[in-house]
C-alpha cells in the first residue's frame, strides 16, 4: 500500500477554550476521495480550518502528517505551497485586490517553493483561460477584486477555479455545495472531477448526500460530536440520506452507552 498522503491521529482541537474535536483519526491515500458528512456543529469546518492552518484553533493532542511531514508545524502559506488547498465554505470579498493578480502571486509563490521558474504573464493568462472554461466562470469576473460583487454561486465557482489553477496535492472542500442550484453544482463537480488523479487526494465535506452523486467518493465518514463515528464506502452516504443522522446517534448510544454528551 502506498504511503499515506495525510494521516490524522487522535486529533483534539479547541477553540476559545472549548474542545470541538475529541480525537479524530483519518488516513487519505493519494488518488482517494473521502467524504466527511455530519450534522451541524459536529466539527466538520473546524477540521478543514485546522488542516489549512487557521490561527484561531488550538491543537491540544494528536498529530497530522502530510506526505510524512508534521503538517501542524507549518505556516499556512507553506502548507499551501506544499500542495494543501482549502476551498472555503464562505469565500470572503477582498476589495482592491484583483483576482488574477493575487492568483498569479500565489501560483508563483508555490512554483518558487518547488524551485521552478515563475510563470510568464502569457502562459499564466493562457492557463486562466483554460481553467476558467472548466468551471464556466466569466473571465471578466476574474479581473475584478476578489469576489467583489460576485453572487454566492460565483464565489463558489471562484474557489474551485483557484483549485484548478493551483493544482493542489490535497484538496479540501468545505461545503462547496451549500447554496448552489443543481446546474451550478454539476459544473463545480465537473471541475473537481477533472482534477481527480492518482496523485491527488480529496476531502469533501458536505452536509448533504446530493453532492456525492456528482463527486463520487471512495470513502464516507460520519463526523459526530467531534469524532469519526462511522466510516464506510459510498453506500453509507445513501443510508444517511435515508435514515438521517439520528440513526448514527442511536447506534453510538447502543454500542457505546454514555459516550454521547448531551
Amino acid at each position: 500500500m502506498a504511503a499515506p498522503l495525510l494521516e490524522i491521529k487522535d486529533l483534539h482541537v479547541s477553540v476559545a477554550g472549548t474542545e470541538i474535536l475529541h480525537g479524530v483519526n483519518l488516513t487519505v491515500i493519494a488518488g482517494e476521495v473521502h467524504a466527511i458528512m455530519g450534522p451541524n456543529g459536529s466539527g466538520k469546518s473546524t477540521l478543514t480550518k485546522v488542516l489549512a492552518g487557521h490561527e484561531a484553533y488550538t491543537i491540544t493532542k494528536g498529530s497530522v502528517k502530510y506526505q510524512g511531514k508534521d503538517l501542524l508545524a507549518l505556516e499556512p502559506e507553506i502548507r499551501a505551497r506544499e500542495g494543501v488547498f482549502l476551498a472555503f465554505q464562505y469565500p470572503i470579498e477582498i476589495p482592491g485586490v484583483s483576482n488574477t493578480y493575487f492568483l498569479r502571486a500565489a501560483l508563483n509563490a508555490a512554483r518558487k517553493h518547488r524551485g521552478e521558474k515563475e510563470l510568464e504573464a502569457d502562459a499564466f493568462l493562457e492557463l486562466v483561460k483554460q481553467r476558467a472554461k472548466l468551471v464556466e466562470i466569466d473571465a471578466a469576473l476574474l479581473n475584478r477584486p476578489i469576489n467583489e460583487g460576485f453572487s454566492g454561486g460565483e464565489k463558489k465557482r471562484n474557489e474551485i477555479f483557484q483549485l484548478t489553477m493551483l493544482e493542489p496535492t490535497l484538496a479540501i472542500l468545505d461545503e462547496t455545495d451549500s447554496g448552489l442550484d443543481i446546474d451550478a453544482l454539476r459544473v463545480i463537480a465537473g471541475g473537481v472531477n477533472a482534477m481527480r488523479s492518482i496523485k491527488r487526494g480529496f476531502i469533501v465535506v458536505t452536509h448533504y448526500q446530493r453532492l456525492l452523486d456528482y463527486i463520487v467518493p471512495d470513502f464516507v465518514h460520519v463526523l459526530f460530536d467531534g469524532r469519526i463515528a462511522k466510516s464506510g464506502k459510498k453506500d453509507l452516504a445513501l443510508e444517511l440520506e435515508k435514515k438521517g443522522y439520528s440513526w448514527i446517534e442511536e447506534e453510538i448510544a447502543r454500542t457505546n452507552p454514555g459516550s454521547i454528551k448531551v
Partner: peptide, 21 residues
Amino acid sequence: FFLRSRGLSARDARALLTLAF
C-alpha cells in the same frame, strides 16, 4: 488567512491588503 492559505507569505498578504486599502 485566506491569502496565506493560497500561498502568499504573511508579509506579502499584509502588503497586498494595505496597498489595496
